[in-house]
Amino acid sequence: MSMQISGLAFDPATHPRRSTRVAFGEALMELAERDLRIVALAADSARLCCTWDFNEKHPDRGFNIGIAEQNLIGMAAGMASCGLIPFACSYAPFLQSRAIEQIRNDCAYTKLPVKIMATAAGIQMGTAGSTHHATEDLAILRSIANMTVVVPADAHATYKLTFKVAEWPGPVWLRTGRDPEFVVYTDGRDFEIGKAVVLREGRDATIIACGNLVLHALLAADLLAQEGLRIGVIDMHTIKPLDREAVLKAARETGRIVTAEEHNVIGGLGGAVAEVLAQEQPTPMRMIGLNDIFASIGPTYDLMKKYGLTYEGVADTVRKFVRG
């Protein structure tokens, strides 16, 4: 179980933070020691993606190829076709669209094990503007056959899942953030790709969240517990393949599903969950995310709050949903 956190006591100024991309870099460095097939590629993004030290330590296996995302993914595909396991690392906003044809044709169509570390995803670069936000990546990537899409909830989950991503067959989109993210997991647990983590059992509704929204889902559930509601929380760190059983079980047990993601409400986690429920177990839903807009400018946490992507907004949505 996660640490005892509560929306009543949560203070964003003091809650411990750890960076997902730093955790990724540490895991990659460990992987490189034990597996000579691991290669790191960055597109003038090695410092951001925390592969700079990798490149220094393994100059024969770490490459910075310049600002050229299409070439980044194409090269990674060529390397993967020869038996290497390349991690191609850059900004999520540029990879999700500029390099998408290389991802689709060269990695997914071919089932090659290219691991795409997409950092600064969501609205984590709040003050950089929407050119630097990635709020469509989950929708785009999960619509491509053979792709796997992983969104860890915090640094620990990123660290653990990076090892799983490396050994997973085929291409993977691994979504990470930018500034150190709030810590969710302190219990050292492990994760399996495609297997959701049930953090709270519920009765009145279940929040299915990914990435940064997992923490806020937990905080919201704790807040609502004070009001007598029992809200389930699921960390759906793998958007594809989706853990359908976990979704259906939560729907059966709580009768209401709320999805929460740092992404456009169209086509991401909410869409994936809705596709399962609509076909197998029609269940009332609410979807929390950016409501089909480009986000405004601002410090990330302020933006998250503005768009109802912090625990207060999540709790509001769930409360209205349950109380009617």
């Binding site: 290669v39 024969d60 296996r61 490459f63 299409q70 070439n71 993914i73 194409g74 090269m75 990674a76 595909a77 060529g78 390397m79 993967a80 076709s81 020869c82 038996g83 290497l84 390349p86 044809e101 290389q102 044709n105 060269d106 169509y109 071919t110 089932k111």
Partner: peptide, 30 residues
């Protein structure tokens, strides 16, 4: 994946040189 002896799937133009470069660099790594 379907044609024995075909080293890469292609069709959309402008992809092959990056792939060939990755292959050539893989030889160096390996």
């Amino acid at each position: 994946l379907k044609i024995p002896g075909a080293d890469m799937s292609t069709g959309s133009l402008g992809h092959g040189l990056a792939i060939g470069l990755g292959m050539a660099m893989a030889a160096r790594v390996q």
